[in-house]
Write a protein that binds this DNA or RNA. Structure first.
Length: 289
DNA sequence: AACTTATGCAACCGCGGGGCG
DNA sequence: TCGCCCCGCGGTTGCATAAGT
């Protein structure tokens, strides 16, 4: 017994999409909207798997996609976000309007990896290659992106989440955390326009009197954590179970995802990320509110 | 010009998570 | 609480094209 196939493979096309198939998909979504991918192919008269339709739409047909080469600014942003989030391509894509996770993933593997290597930077740890080979300078610090889940310690209280919050140094007002829901965070048209203009300015020129600080480090609290006497001692290594890892992940993502507003990557009134079912919506408000 | 190799990108696959009955 | 179903994510594959010999 296994999972039932997502679709009837015998009656579905595979491989490259034809123009006719594209048009059918576009026409259908234009009328009915996104969603219900499983039933969409039949309804749209397509001999395709629902997943294939979804992928085609999201990665290629969506009207808000930005085609063309990545800019230098996008490159640097991807590198920063990857150092922060690791291979969370969908999260990274959420910060880059018009770019898809697949596109960023491909771009990372084909261009940015090479770029980092040429700079002498490890593409996984984002540390200098010679430093990576010799191990972390601080043995008590855990690398959130690369540490196996089993390497995290028992209780969240033993952790110190050091998150240098992304901020615009000269703009205190940009630190506010607007609600991402339409019902509670709706503003007037004028306010929306001003915010969009403000956001766009920040996105277009983040160095214009403002500085992005995307540094994140997670380490063991110096007060509460057990002493680590030797970096090689298995016993001394902090242990985290799956729950704690999830706690960390959620804490980090919660901090990170709210920044879609602060960073100005939001392109419409309702934060697109928060609208999706990828987890953003839940973390839209600050944790401590 | 013909062939081989490298590269880039679209598409596929399998799995995990969340919603729901 | 459990199991089913669907969606979405990340890793991988395969094809088309460019570059090199």
């Amino acid at each position: 017994m296994g999972r039932s196939p997502c679709c009837e493979k015998a009656h579905t096309n595979k491989g490259a999409w034809t123009k006719d198939e594209d048009q059918r998909l576009i026409d259908y979504i234009r009328v009915h909207g996104e969603g219900c991918w499983r039933s969409l192919p039949k309804a749209a008269g397509l001999l395709r798997c629902g997943k294939s339709c979804r992928l085609r739409w999201i990665n290629y047909l969506r009207p808000d996609l930005k085609r063309g080469n990545f800019t230098e600014e996008e490159d640097e942003l991807i590198i920063k976000l990857h150092s922060l989030l690791g291979n969370k391509w969908s999260l990274i894509a959420g910060r880059l309007p018009g770019r898809t996770d697949n596109e960023i993933k491909n771009y990372w593997n084909t261009h940015i990896k090479r770029k980092l290597v040429s700079r002498g930077i490890d593409t996984q740890t984002h540390r200098p290659l010679n430093e990576t080979a010799a191990g972390s300078a601080n043995p008590t610090e855990l690398d959130f992106r690369t540490a196996p889940k089993s390497d995290f310690i028992k209780t969240p209280s033993h952790l110190e989440l050091k998150y240098n919050e992304i901020r615009f140094k000269s703009n205190a007002d940009s630190l506010e955390e607007p609600n991402c829901t339409a019902s509670s965070g709706m503003t007037t048209d004028e306010e929306q326009q001003q915010r969009q203009l403000h956001n766009k300015k920040q996105y277009d020129n983040p160095s214009d009197g403002q500085e992005l600080n995307l540094e994140l480090s997670i380490g063991i609290s110096s007060v509460d954590s057990p002493r680590v006497s030797s970096a090689n001692s298995v016993e001394s290594k902090p242990k985290l179970d799956n729950n704690n890892f999830q706690f960390l992940e959620q804490a980090m993502v919660a901090k990170a995802v709210c920044l879609c507003w602060q960073l100005g990557f939001r392109t419409s009134e309702i934060c697109r990320n928060c609208q999706n079912s990828n987890g953003f919506y839940r973390f839209c408000r600050p944790l401590d509110s």
